[in-house]
């Protein structure tokens, strides 16, 4: 049954992703390959919508993925149920973990084991997000699905150019870099339409 599987997949995502919304993306990519509920391209679109709407990025993405998976199985109502199940699945581990930690707050903060575990977890999380980023780059800039298809890659110069411009705007242009992500998303959408991406 798809809803039980949705719950379990998102419970797993909530339990093992460390470092906020972007940290859920490697798990969602894994989910896309394992279940076929959505494609990598759809995932990138869902992240964009999640970035441009109110609410935490990770929660928005989970809701969207749940809706997409549910709609495929049982139409619109199935989608709504899927959205709810995925979101509840995502937050359930948080609720359990945080309530347990709240009871041992001082011990938790001073534990050498906890500190040690996160010493290893943080760079692993960065590695996972970077790898997920690479596969979205391959798809959207080089038009291939996995790194093993590199022979088929054809670099779209206009895609690369847009990436460089957005990178520069979000990191090095004073004032502009502080703008809300939605402006960069809108800019990219306009560029995509005008230059026929």
């Amino acid at each position: 049954m798809i809803y039980l599987r949705l719950f379990i997949e998102f419970f797993k995502t909530g339990l093992f992703s460390v470092g906020g919304g972007m940290a859920t993306i490697p798990f969602l990519q894994d989910m896309s390959q394992a279940t076929g509920w959505f494609t990598s391209a759809q995932l990138a679109d869902m992240i964009a919508v999640a970035e441009s709407t109110p609410g935490p990025l990770g929660v928005n993405t989970a809701t969207y993925v749940g809706f997409t998976a549910g709609t495929q199985a049982n139409g619109m109502l199935g989608g709504i149920l899927g959205a709810v199940v995925a979101t509840v699945g995502l937050v359930t581990p948080s609720i359990i973990v945080i309530i347990v930690i709240a009871y041992f707050l001082e011990k938790f903060r001073k534990s050498r084991y906890v500190d040690g575990a996160f010493y290893g977890l943080r760079p692993a999380s960065v590695g996972l997000i970077a790898a997920a980023g690479i596969s979205i780059v391959l798809m959207s800039v080089f038009q291939i699905n996995t790194i093993f298809e590199f022979a088929k890659a054809h670099l779209e110069l206009k895609h690369l150019l847009l990436a460089v411009v957005i990178l520069a705007l979000t990191n090095w242009v004073p004032k502009v870099k502080k703008l809300h992500p939605i402006y960069f998303i809108l800019l990219s959408a306009v560029v995509g339409v005008v230059f026929q991406f």
Binding site: A44, A48, V126, F184
Partner: peptide, 21 residues
């Protein structure tokens, strides 16, 4: 076309998150 452009933007957002973390 619009979403193909937006996907490129999402790449940069992910890269920025990686740099920050």
């Amino acid at each position: 076309h619009a979403f193909a452009g937006i996907r490129v933007c999402v790449c940069v957002f992910i890269l920025n998150a990686v740099l920050k973390l």
